[in-house]
């Protein structure tokens, strides 16, 4: 495993920790999209179907368990925790997430590397992950007072896929026969969706002001 890949995984892990920290310490999920969190839980379930069938490494298995466990616990907190759920911006978080799920499933059935159940679910998870941030970005745009932890969470989540792209470029040049078009294009789309956010993130950082996306 190269350093770029490890940095990507760690950024992903830290993003989840930042979110859980916010939920756990200030007992608030204000500004966080439950739609996006539910999509991530679905992404991990469909992608990690191989968790018990293909052993890659202890690191790999542990990380999969962490991502599955944390994504479901975040959804649980937002839906059922008696204090946390009160801070959920239900009226603002109106993105219809099933409009993302169905097209991704159809696309995975049409464009995949191999027509098997596991492979299609894997491909579906890649397509869905690429667009799963959309409800969160819409909510961010609607929210007037976004707290810093929410902004850092979204930034880290975007940085993770950007680091993965660098990892793919590195692997392409260092490993023979390393070609994964579906993964690359979905990852690229996912990172491009963050383009606007990144732009305003750096602007707010440079000018030392609170990030707010223009309506």
């Amino acid at each position: 495993m190269n350093i770029l890949r490890l940095a990507g995984d760690m950024t992903h892990l830290i993003s989840v920790i930042v979110l859980l920290l916010k939920i756990h310490s200030i007992k608030s999920c204000a500004g966080i999209s439950l739609k996006t969190q539910e999509l991530y839980a679905l992404v991990f379930v469909s992608r990690y179907l191989n968790i018990f069938t293909d052993f890659i490494s202890l690191y790999n298995t542990i990380m999969k368990l962490i991502f599955l466990g944390t994504s479901f616990s975040i959804v649980w907190y937002m839906r059922y925790h008696k204090i946390v759920r009160r801070s959920y911006d239900k009226d603002q978080d109106t993105f219809r997430h099933y409009f993302l799920v169905l097209p991704c499933l159809i696309l995975a059935l049409l464009i995949n590397e191999r027509f098997t159940f596991k492979e299609i679910m894997w491909t579906f998870s890649l397509y869905l992950e690429a667009v799963a941030i959309l409800p969160q970005l819409v909510l961010l745009q609607r929210t007037k007072n976004t707290d810093n932890l929410t902004v850092q969470y979204i930034f880290l989540l975007g940085a993770y896929r950007a680091l993965y792209i660098l990892n793919w470029i590195y692997r392409y040049f260092t490993e023979p026969d390393y070609l994964h078009w579906i993964t690359w294009i979905s990852g690229l789309v996912q990172t491009i969706l963050y383009g606007d956010f990144f732009y305003y993130y750096f602007l707010s950082w440079k000018n030392n002001v609170k990030l707010q996306l223009p309506a």
Binding site: D9, D54, N60
Partner: peptide, 10 residues
Amino acid sequence: EIFHEPKDEL
């Protein structure tokens, strides 16, 4: 079968 080694990325 170059595509179908076990997926090693997360």
